[in-house]
Design a protein around this nucleic acid. Structure first.
Ligand code: NAD
Ligand code: NAD
Lengths: 256, 256
DNA sequence: TACCGCTTGTGAACGCATGCACAAAGTCGG
DNA sequence: CCGACTTTGTGCATGCGTTCACAAGCGGTA
């Protein structure tokens, strides 16, 4: 379907249009995996690997080879039959599809235990997510630099987020403050939120929320231990587990 | 189907057997949501709420009411038609299904930025996940208490994990160390691993891995921004987003 | 050039998850 | 006791995601 790119376009507009028609159709689960492939491929590129087959890449990414090929097919046909994929080419196309061709400025709200860790973490800027603003309600923290960036007071959030074009807001406040912080981020024009507080956030339709809930992760693990233990009791088979299969915890966006 | 519990069992064995037959059939996605329901219900219980309808609970959990009822039906029929659910009853049944009737001892490996945050976090013990051991390779850290628990050297991991019956290992080391730490945890009998390092871990079939990859989360958000921006360009509709629908980042368990 | 072996890309089948819609089953008021 | 009203539990249809299997396509080789 579609494709046949590189025919005779002068501007890049038709090409991009085709890509974005496609982008809409990429399954959510595939997007998550594409990010993983990208990381693996980046690692390979750094190690000097220039070509890779779907089999090799799928091994490294921990997925089924057929699934990997299907995932890649969502973004276009950039492989060579009989040979495999060019690592650089794949990297650049995945980056383009994931919108990583431009930087996404990140603001962290709540500079406590977790906020400190996030602000100090060096892994984000390198991947196109520079942390450009930190916020907290605690007056003692305001002005203190964490990870090289001074903490601002939460009341400045709207002005600063607009000014620095923050596109991702990270919420690392205690649960009771999370919704209010979220509302402020939204009114500052932030359309993506990564929420660490164990709260279900209410947001408008045009805002995307993803949550990371460690307690939920542990409870899922707990469930599998329990299940495995029972299986071991019922039939005395070794208790084989399939691992979590691509599902995970969700983002819970309310839509009215 | 099934149910009709509380008939005439003397021991609890037949009841539990029925539950565990069921447990095997609970969809992974439903398990993740059950953990969310549990959190919401616990909050309600603390606020003195004793009964709740599927409509109310689904609102609070950010899911469709029908889905919520179906999720609850996987664990049994504990509601009262025309009335709703008893909060306490639901809490105890979800806890039982998730295996939260017993504590799950947690060990954190890699007491850097993130490890400190995790060790200091008070939210785990209260939810049945006491952190009982910390490990790091850095000799300067060994012996220093973090969150009330002294850091041990990584070489002691096997002995201590066995002794303290650690059931969940949390990996918060730099990526290159993650696989080796994982292997040590596995050989210490740990069957559940929560991995923060951006690496695909290779584990035996009987070990369950879940990963939390913040860069991947951000890239998924980035994808949606890009998609939304394009939609806005193509047709000038407001750019409505569906939010992430219960999917997320996965755990990538290799099976040979 | 023609053939061979290898790997991609994808049509099609399957299975799981979601959401609808309604019967069953309960409460409450009279 | 009965009938009206409420809410659960679930059969069923629909849609999404995964997996299989294989034709199409490419590089290498004679
Ligand atoms: N630390 C962890 O490992 C961990 C693990 C899982 C979940 N979480 C969750 O992450 C969140 C943060 O955890 P933490 O351990 O860093 O908590 P923390 O108490 O150490 O830090 C919270 C910070 O948020 C600030 N804050 C409070 N109200 C605010 C507001 N309205 N606006 C801006 N800042 C505000 C506080 O001043 C504090 O600095 C919590 O919701 C917690 O449940 C943390
Ligand atoms: N800090 C964050 O916010 C953040 C965000 C996303 C991902 N991560 C990931 O989490 C992991 C930890 O991040 P961090 O910022 O805490 O790193 P960090 O460098 O601050 O801490 C790593 C710790 O692990 C210890 N360590 C190294 N090798 C070890 C080994 N073999 N055994 C035991 N301990 C060992 C180090 O001594 C150090 O204390 C990394 O893989 C990072 O990519 C962190």
């Amino acid at each position: 379907m579609v494709s046949q790119r590189g025919e005779g376009e002068t501007t890049s507009t038709p090409l991009e249009a085709a890509d974005k028609e496609r982008a809409r159709a990429i399954p959510e689960a595939a997007v998550a995996r594409l990010a993983v492939y990208l990381r693996v491929l980046s690692g390979m590129a750094e190690s000097g690997v220039t070509a890779v087959s779907s089999e090799e890449l799928s091994q490294a990414a921990g997925v089924n080879a057929a699934k990997l090929r299907k995932d890649l097919s969502y973004i276009g046909s950039y492989g060579t039959r009989g040979v495999g994929y060019d690592v650089e080419v794949l990297v650049s196309h995945i980056e383009r599809i994931l919108g990583l061709t431009r930087n996404h400025s990140v603001a962290v709200v709540g500079i406590g235990n977790l906020g400190h860790a996030l602000a100090n973490y060096g892994g984000f800027p390198g991947r196109g997510f520079p942390v450009t603003a930190l916020f907290d309600v605690d007056a003692d923290l305001v002005g203190i630099p964490v990870g090289g960036i001074p903490v601002n007071h939460i009341d400045e959030i709207t002005a600063i987020c607009l000014e620095r074009e923050v596109s991702i807001g990270v919420i690392a406040t205690p649960p009771p403050a999370a919704q209010s912080v979220c509302d402020r981020l939204v009114s500052a024009g932030v359309q993506c939120i990564l929420n660490f507080a164990p709260v279900v956030l209410q947001v408008p339709d045009n805002v995307e929320v993803r949550k990371v809930d460690l307690a939920v992760e542990m409870q899922i693990l707990s469930f599998h231990v329990a299940r495995r233990a029972d299986e071991a009791v019922h039939n005395s088979n070794g208790g084989v587990s399939v691992g979590n299969n691509g599902l995970g915890v969700d983002g819970m966006v309310i839509r009215p």
